[in-house]
């Protein structure tokens, strides 16, 4: 079975991309979930879609844009969207969550306009919404690898600060830690990871890769470190299993990945209930 995967370059690309995002999406997801910002991933994925659509639309007018992977348009819009979310959070201090539906609806609105202006890419659209096993080019893979490496390194070096600010932001600030800057760096990483995950899981399901493995992990883990490790394992199993089954059953990988994550989540909930029952 793995021979087929190694035979075709497009499958290798998707497979390796999947393995990278299976690590970094749940890694960032742990910090997103404990800070109660789960919905931010949805907002950023929709704004990424408008960036992808804008690049594809621009490509129909100018050969310059035709040479640029829509991945970069998605990243650019996603990062800009993340910066706007941060700005809106400070504007609406007492309604911080308001920033998420604002950016999400702007993302969908722009996306719909760009998509209807260029009806030439309707086939691709399905892939962008629900993921595709054949959509990653070799150059995309290289960019995704570099971003993955960057994310892991930054999280390792900012781990102390990210943990403290997530656990008790006031204490972090009282210790003189520049919470705003750390947070800004983090949110930009989230924006980048969402943009690169879209090709595999799709706009509509990308946030699940940041939340479902973490939700399952929290049922099992006894420490923050374990929460991260289990999340990555669950994320990796979901992505790899999802890609393989999507290929053989000819399904959209977004759906299979999410379904495997959901099965893992259900198993962990039942298992932790059993543990509690036995402990009585």
């Amino acid at each position: 079975m793995f021979q087929t995967f190694l035979q075709y370059e497009f499958l290798q690309n998707s497979f390796l991309t999947g393995m990278i995002i299976g690590i970094i999406a749940p890694l960032l997801g742990v910090f997103i979930v404990v800070r109660k910002m789960s919905l931010i991933a949805d907002a950023l994925s929709h704004i990424s879609l408008s960036g992808i659509a804008a690049t594809m639309l621009a490509a129909t007018y100018s050969p310059f844009f035709a040479g640029i992977s829509p991945l970069y348009g998605g990243m650019l819009f996603s990062v800009i969207g993340a910066l706007f979310i941060e700005k809106l959070r400070s504007v609406y201090k007492h309604f911080e969550e308001l920033s998420i539906p604002i950016i999400m609806s702007i993302g969908i609105g722009l996306g719909v306009i760009f998509i209807s202006l260029a009806d030439g890419f309707n086939n691709d659209l399905f892939g962008y919404l629900f993921g595709s096993v054949s959509a990653v080019s070799r150059t995309d893979l290289y960019s995704i690898f570099i971003i993955g490496l960057l994310v892991v390194l930054i999280i390792i070096f900012l781990y102390k600060e990210l943990f403290l600010l997530a656990f008790d932001e006031e204490y972090g600030k009282a210790q003189g830690i520049r919470g705003n800057i750390v947070h800004l760096i983090f949110i930009i990483l989230v924006a980048l990871v969402i943009a690169i995950s879209i090709r595999i899981v799709g706009v509509l399901l990308v946030s699940s890769l940041m939340t479902l493995p973490v939700a399952a992990s929290m049922r099992m883990a006894k420490s923050f470190k374990q929460t991260i490790i289990f999340s990555i394992i669950f994320g990796e199993v979901s992505v790899v299993g999802g890609l393989i089954s999507a290929f053989y059953l000819d399904l959209a990988p977004g759906g299979t990945i999410v379904c495997i994550s959901a099965v893992i989540l259900i198993i962990t909930i039942l298992y932790s209930k059993k543990l509690k029952y036995n402990a009585r």
Partner: peptide, 18 residues
């Protein structure tokens, strides 16, 4: 948040961040 998945060890250690 009391649901935060962290051990006493991890919380105390975070006091060394600065």
């Amino acid at each position: 948040n009391t649901g935060f998945p962290a051990t006493v060890y991890e919380v105390v250690r975070s006091g060394l961040t600065k």
